[in-house]
């Protein structure tokens, strides 16, 4: 039960953050776009992206300040698998122009048909990937 409540509460905060970023700075909270923007040539827009990414990094330490422990994290993937997965996530989110936040949260909230197709596609291949991994053991 608690898992559902914390998931919902965290989701509400994520939605609030995306709303505030749009209302204040006029930007869409798409993490892949923001992180890629932090890799571009230094400038004001770049600095904004770096600040948002730094905030993301500060999220877990703030959680620890509030609750006295780090958030739970289980990571089963081997180092090689992490590298392959990271390459796919980096390349794929740039080619598809968004990830779970840009297409998932913001795109769905904007009722964007492109984002609905993207979310259906990446959820589908992610589910299929986990299924095949378990099948092949």
């Amino acid at each position: 039960m608690t898992a559902y409540l914390t998931a919902l509460a965290g989701g509400l905060l994520i939605g609030l953050s995306a709303t505030l970023l749009l209302v204040l700075n006029g930007r869409i909270a798409g993490i892949s776009g923001i992180v890629a923007g932090a890799l571009r040539r230094p400038g004001l827009l770049w600095l904004g992206n770096v600040c948002f990414a730094a905030g993301l990094f500060l999220g877990p330490p703030l959680y620890r300040l509030a609750f006295g422990a780090w958030p739970a994290l289980r990571l089963e993937a081997s180092p090689w698998l992490l590298v392959v997965a990271g390459l796919l996530v980096g390349f794929g989110t740039r080619l598809g122009a968004g990830c779970t936040s840009g297409h998932g949260v913001c795109g769905l909230a904007r009722l964007s048909p492109r984002s609905m197709v993207a979310v259906g596609t990446f959820l589908g291949t992610a589910v299929l990937t986990v299924f095949l991994q378990h099948l092949l053991g």
Partner: peptide
């Protein structure tokens, strides 16, 4: 792009944020 991202997300359980 979404296909590739989904495969990577499934393999590790991590998305960018």
């Amino acid at each position: 792009g979404a296909v590739l991202f989904g495969v990577g997300w499934g393999l590790a359980g991590f998305c960018p944020g």
